[in-house]
Design a protein around this nucleic acid. Structure first.
Length: 208
DNA sequence: AACTCGGGGCA
DNA sequence: TGCCCAGAGTT
């Protein structure tokens, strides 16, 4: 059994219920939640979107909000001016070009203002169930530490992970790596002594 | 590759 | 008080 397969099976056993922690009930809601999640905690995003989606459910309804109203609604997440502007511009495109629906292709999604490859992959994998690997800071850090990938370019990390992980596990592996990054393999003070992957990890910290 | 946007949470 | 948080766009 290869090292990668060992790592994947341990992650699978450790986080059997790993899933997307952004709350959504439609592709549109996931797109908005993911756009809002940049440099914010998913818990805060869920608090904000719970309020937002109670009153506004479609791009058409979002467009009834002014920029100032949108900024106020999402202010506590930070980066609110760019997020609000991009969300309204994206809703406009969804209504004008896609009949108010979220397109299900990488090309169309990344053409939307404020939607990059990471956000697009989250929407494609979680809302459309299309195999994809979304590389955020957690996935980048953890995959580097574990030796599953190397470098700082998210696009290259994505390719490396997609080549060493079976396609059928891309979506789950994405969630496993994030859950592991948040619970054990944190950016600061990783909990190596209690990490089930420690014996396989090239970057493990020896107990002090 | 480096910078900027940004309020909130947590040690 | 300092640093990180399920990033993207511009320079």
């Amino acid at each position: 059994m290869s090292n990668v397969n060992s790592i994947l099976s341990i992650l699978a056993a450790t986080y059997p219920e790993a899933h997307c922690e952004l709350n959504f009930s439609t592709p549109f809601e996931l797109l908005i939640a993911t756009m809002l999640s940049a440099q914010a905690t998913d818990k805060k995003v869920n608090q904000v979107t719970e309020r937002l989606f109670r009153d506004y459910k479609t791009p058409e309804q979002f467009l009834t909000m002014s920029l100032a109203e949108m900024e106020q609604a999402i202010k506590e997440l930070g980066l609110y001016h760019n997020k609000a502007k991009n969300i309204l511009a994206t809703c406009h495109i969804l209504v004008e070009n896609y009949g108010g629906e979220v397109p299900g292709s990488m090309e169309a999604l990344t053409q939307l203002p404020g939607v990059g490859r990471k956000t697009a992959n989250v929407v494609l994998s979680n809302a459309f169930h299309i195999p994809a690997m979304a590389v955020d800071t957690h996935v980048l850090r953890v995959s580097n530490r574990l030796g599953l990938a190397s470098g700082t370019n998210p696009d290259l990390i994505e390719k490396q992970l997609m080549s060493c992980i079976p396609r059928s596990q891309w979506i789950q592996a994405h969630h496993w790596l994030i859950w592991h990054g948040r619970r054990i393999c944190a950016a600061r003070n990783p909990k190596c002594p209690e990490c089930p992957l420690s014996p396989l990890c090239p970057s493990r910290l020896l107990p002090a």
